[in-house]
Simulated assay, not measured.
Amino acid sequence: MKIITETPRLIIREFTLEDAPAVLHFNTPEQVNRYTGDAGVCNTLSDAENIIGNIWLVEYQQYGFGRWAMVLKDTNTVIGFCGFKNETRINAVDIGYRLHPDYWGKGLTTEANQACIDYAKQHMDLDIVYADVANANSASINVATKLGMTYHSQYQHGEFTFNRYEISLKTV
């Protein structure tokens, strides 16, 4: 397993198939997927294994990055994902995050994704990164703005209005 970076409380690393129970656990609560557009995609251990094996592991090989596991240092527990995705529907790189509700409101998502941005600035060839956040999801909007992302545009997708945020990773 490849460790990407660390924070005071977290290890950010690539997922492995052994993480499937944790992926199922952090995707199961209804409120986790309320605004993601993929509610119901991860309901079984087999679903979690497919996400890891057929999406994340493939993206690591294809792009050198993908969604990464957020692991609590104290307990070695995978509590969610963070990091980047080559988002083909927008032809750009997206930063995303998902976290089990037991860990909401503790600053872990901001901590993890700030570490991802810092890592990308030093080790990845990315110019601009986007985050699409449902307008109704104020907690995720707060994360995006705490990361230094700025409002770019708004669009409608299905039942939700999304705000697109952006950040430049290139230093002048």
Rank of each mutant, 00 (worst) to 15 (best):
G64R: 07
F81Q: 10
I90Q: 15
N50E: 11
A144P: 01
V133E: 05
I51W: 15
M1V: 12
L57Q: 12
M124A: 11
A134V: 01
N43L: 13
A112E: 05
I52S: 05
Q31T: 15
V23Q: 12
L169D: 04
I128S: 06
R34K: 15
D74G: 09
E18F: 14
E30K: 12
T28H: 12
S153N: 08
S140C: 01
L57W: 05
G158K: 06
R9A: 08
T88D: 14
L147W: 00
D19C: 03
I52K: 02
E166D: 06
G148Y: 10
L57E: 11
I51N: 07
P29F: 07
P8I: 10
A139W: 01
F65C: 12
L126Y: 14
K73F: 14
F160Q: 00
Y165C: 01
E166C: 15
C42N: 09
E6W: 03
N135E: 15
Y60V: 13
A139G: 10
L72M: 12
I4A: 01
F65S: 13
K73Y: 11
M124D: 13
G158V: 04
N91V: 06
I11T: 08
L147E: 00
T5W: 04
L169M: 06
Q61S: 14
T77D: 07
V32Q: 03
R67E: 01
E111P: 00
G148K: 05
A134F: 14
H100C: 12
R164E: 13
Q61V: 05
G66W: 00
I141G: 13
E49M: 10
D38E: 15
T5P: 09
L24K: 10
L108Y: 15
I12V: 09
K73N: 07
F65M: 07
R164D: 07
C42G: 04
S140M: 10
R34C: 04
L99Q: 09
N33C: 11
V71R: 09
A144R: 08
D132C: 14
I167L: 14
R34D: 14
Q156P: 10
K106Q: 15
M1H: 11
C116H: 10
Q31N: 13
P101G: 04
E18C: 02
N27F: 15
T16D: 02
N137D: 13
S168R: 09
F162I: 01
D19H: 06
T36S: 10
L57G: 08
M124H: 00
H100Q: 09
T88A: 13
A134G: 13
L147Y: 04
Y60N: 08
